[in-house]
Nucleic acid binder design. Structure first.
Lengths: 351, 351
DNA sequence: ACTGGCAGTCTCTACATCCGACTGCTAAAC
DNA sequence: GTTTAGCAGTCGGATGTAGAGACTGCCAGT
């Protein structure tokens, strides 16, 4: 329970044990550790150290006559030292190259994030994900109305960063194609460069004015804009790839049981759950790691999550991976960090 | 091996056995069947019948002292009679209502298919999927060019059925926004109503002519159109939902092993594999069922696939479900059939 | 042609045993 | 005081055996 009271040797033993366990997946014996170069002491000495570590809750035994396994707290200690020392060495080059290859030169925003999740999966062999920033802070660039039928219009809205969204609007009354063109021209001239949130506010304000001073064209344009912006923000775009890796995780039963697998597959379907789960970790910059029981959701106690935020102007999104607690953290951290940087660069280059 | 030589009673026994096994998941004993109303004979008699059925390859025993389990051939026989008798009773109303609820009144084409796969999953509790028809036969409705920067253009192309596709095009030279508008007007006036394939051919033909008679505007428009249509057809849009149901299938080990699960999860990722898999079954109308070892891919021998085609004008897409061979076929068939009809209606109503 | 009954077969579970892998502890060595 | 070697103790997993239960196949009787 005493904190930070780990001697240098104790720390080295813990680090060695965690590394060994991550590589082998088997409980690590004192004899195994004593054979490792770096700590030149006998297995008996290591046993003492391990007993100490066990008292402090860093490691545990699956059963009396077995080796030691890191606890969540053990992983936490290991990861924290990693995060300190690793800061500099991000894995950008590989990730960025693969992202460019996957997404192409000028990807749509959605394609970029989808590619990012795919690359994260391929490189880490864990479930990769990418979350878009809230749409409401995107910068409005252009809107187009495509007449589908007399009373039905397809709206295409483009925001900065090749961010396209569409919506079909059902009108109460018929509207001429030329009126639609004029409406689009008006809105483009008026609002380009504002955030969608600002646009929404401006539109509502003008609709208020409009009640008194009467202008057919503007009324139509503003009404269309309001309808378009309605309900735009609710579902945050989420891209997930690599669910098949979960089968591997469950197969060599890394504590990833069938029920955990099901939970994760559900999450892949209802992506919004992931957004809610991540909400708490999206403040700080850099990489955050959530290990096992640190998750609020008990179903995920067998999983760890590595997540980094990226910036797109004033907006903030996230990329990351999800895997078993027995995860190759050092690799995952540098890959996720690299992906966040690569995505941000891509977006910067586009604008 | 003799075909069709099944007596009436033998058929009833087989049907009963398959139903029982589908419900219980346990090998069915002769005594269990004799207790079933409908076939009023003793277990000994049934044992004789079962021995016969086993000789003919319709059922098998997991081990000597166990009940019988249907073989793929047994399922096939069961399903074929189902397909004959069930033809009339499709499950449209439920499915259509849920689809409407899920997709909304005027969904984009992609939303419609995505909703269809979701509804199929929810109703059948198996993996649901929906495949779009090849884009090349879609009816061109409208194109818009949105300038992103001096040399970068976002193309938005709308085909009939609220089918929107986008693409960013990188230009070699700068182009004025007004030129883009004119180009769009020209293309819309010229090609609306043709299939994309026809548009492509027409564009290429005119580009040939253009070499001699020179017209700046048209050249730009046609070049843009060509670039837009390039590589549009390659990946067929596929929507899949319900991977989490695979965890359930694997849990009560319906012969769905971890490796099958992995194969299916991979398929969910590389959706094009599903398209290739289905290519063979997309000719006839109505519902097709592929059972276990009938799959070309040996990894899927533990799975069955129920698929129906839907028509959108002259185009043809597919919807269906994938599950363990021990699947509730009668329900799956009527649901998939209903979904195909519902999707087709939706598309008809949109046009 | 059908049925009752019985012997035979195979799985599954429980229980007993053995082996191997570690640990914890203690007493000696440094 | 710290480290080490050695040894007893503990537990899990593999292996073996026995008995119960679940069916079938077959045969003789109706």
């Amino acid at each position: 329970m005493t904190f930070g009271a780990l001697s240098d040797r104790t720390r080295r033993v813990l680090a060695c044990l965690v590394k060994d366990y991550i590589d082998s997946g088997e409980p690590v014996a004192s004899a195994t550790l004593s054979r490792r170069p770096g700590l030149g002491v006998s297995s008996a000495t290591i046993r003492n150290v391990l007993a100490q570590l066990e008292d402090m809750g860093y490691v545990s035994q699956p059963h009396t006559s077995a080796g030691r396994v890191p606890t969540d707290r053990g992983y936490r200690y290991y990861v924290d030292t990693l995060l300190e020392t690793r800061r500099a060495s991000r894995d950008i080059s590989t990730v960025e190259a693969r992202l460019r290859e996957q997404a192409g030169e000028a990807p749509l925003f959605d394609q970029l994030l989808s590619s990012a999740s795919h690359v994260l999966f391929e490189v880490s062999h864990h479930v990769g994900f990418a979350i878009a920033p809230s749409d409401m802070h995107a910068i409005f660039q252009r809107i187009e109305f495509v007449p589908l039928s007399a009373s039905r219009v397809l709206v295409v809205m483009v925001a900065r960063g090749n961010h396209v969204s569409q919506k079909v609007i059902e009108l109460n009354e018929e509207i001429a194609p030329s009126a639609l063109t004029q409406a689009a021209n008006y809105l483009n001239a008026e609002f380009a460069g504002l955030s969608l949130d600002e646009v929404r506010q401006a539109v509502l304000a003008r609709l208020e004015e409009q009640r008194t001073l009467y202008d057919e064209l503007r009324a139509v344009a503003l009404t269309l804009a309001r309808t378009t912006l309605e309900g735009l923000e609710s579902p945050t775009a989420v891209f997930i790839d690599g669910a098949s890796s979960l089968a591997d995780d469950a197969e060599d039963a890394n504590g990833v049981s069938m029920s955990t697998l099901r939970t994760l597959l559900r999450m892949v379907e209802e992506k919004q759950r992931l957004v809610r789960l991540l909400d708490a970790y999206l403040d700080g910059p850099g990489v955050a790691v959530v290990i096992g029981a640190e998750h609020p959701d008990p179903q995920l106690h067998a999983c760890s999550l590595v997540v980094a935020t990226y910036r797109d102007g004033a907006r903030r999104g996230a990329v990351g991976v999800i895997g078993p607690t027995r995860m190759h953290y050092s690799r995952a951290i540098s890959v996720v960090d690299g992906a966040a940087v690569a995505v941000a660069r891509f977006l910067r280059d586009q604008n």
